[in-house]
C-alpha cells in the first residue's frame, strides 16, 4: 500500500472512524464524504469497536503480500452500530469460531511492504477477554 493511501485511510484504520448520514440517520463504515444511499454529505462518526461475527473463513492461499501469513482468519464483522466490515480475526483458534460470537477491535500489524516499504497497521478483531469461559460457567 502506497504512503499517500495509507495516510488517507489512517483515521478509519486506527480509530474506526466512520461517517454518519443525518438524512438517513445511519452510520457508515468505511467513511465517505457522501451517503451512498441518498448523496447527502456525511459527518464523522466514531464506532465503539464492538460487534459480532457475521461470517468467517480461513484463508489457505493468500494473495501477494499475505501469502506468507497463511493460514489466517478473515471475517465480516457486524458492528453493534449496524454496518458490516471486513477484517482479520486475531487471537483465535479457527476451530473455536462460530457465527454470532462477540468480537472487539484491536490495532495490529497487518503486513510489511518489503524491506524498503512501510509497515501497515490496521484494526483486527478478537473475542473479548474472558468471553470463552463465561457462557459455560
Amino acid at each position: 500500500m502506497d504512503g499517500a493511501r495509507q495516510w488517507r485511510t489512517r483515521a478509519a484504520r486506527y480509530s474506526l472512524l466512520g461517517a454518519y448520514c443525518g438524512r438517513c440517520d445511519k452510520p457508515e463504515f468505511p467513511p465517505r464524504p457522501r451517503c451512498p444511499r441518498c448523496g447527502h454529505e456525511t459527518t464523522e462518526f466514531a464506532f465503539s469497536g464492538r460487534g459480532t461475527v457475521y461470517s468467517y473463513s480461513v484463508v489457505r492461499q493468500g494473495p501477494d503480500g499475505f501469502a506468507d501469513q497463511v493460514p489466517y482468519v478473515v471475517a465480516l464483522v457486524a458492528l453493534e452500530e449496524g454496518p458490516l466490515l471486513a477484517a482479520q480475526l486475531t487471537d483465535v483458534e479457527p476451530g473455536e469460531l462460530r457465527i454470532g460470537q462477540p468480537v472487539e477491535m484491536v490495532t495490529r500489524r497487518l503486513r510489511d511492504d518489503g524491506p524498503q516499504g512501510t509497515v501497515l497497521y490496521s484494526y483486527k478483531f478478537r473475542p473479548p477477554r474472558g468471553w470463552q469461559t463465561a457462557p459455560s460457567g
Binding site: 485511510t9 468467517y56 484463508v59 501469513q69 465480516l76 471486513a86 477484517a87 457465527i99 501497515l120
Partner: peptide
C-alpha cells in the same frame, strides 16, 4: 477496505458460502 485486510476473491466467496 477488503484487499488491504488480506481478503482474496476466494475469501469473499467463502464468507458468503459460510453465511
Amino acid at each position: 477496505f477488503e484487499v488491504d485486510q488480506g481478503l482474496s476473491f476466494v475469501a469473499l466467496n467463502a464468507l458468503l458460502m459460510r453465511r
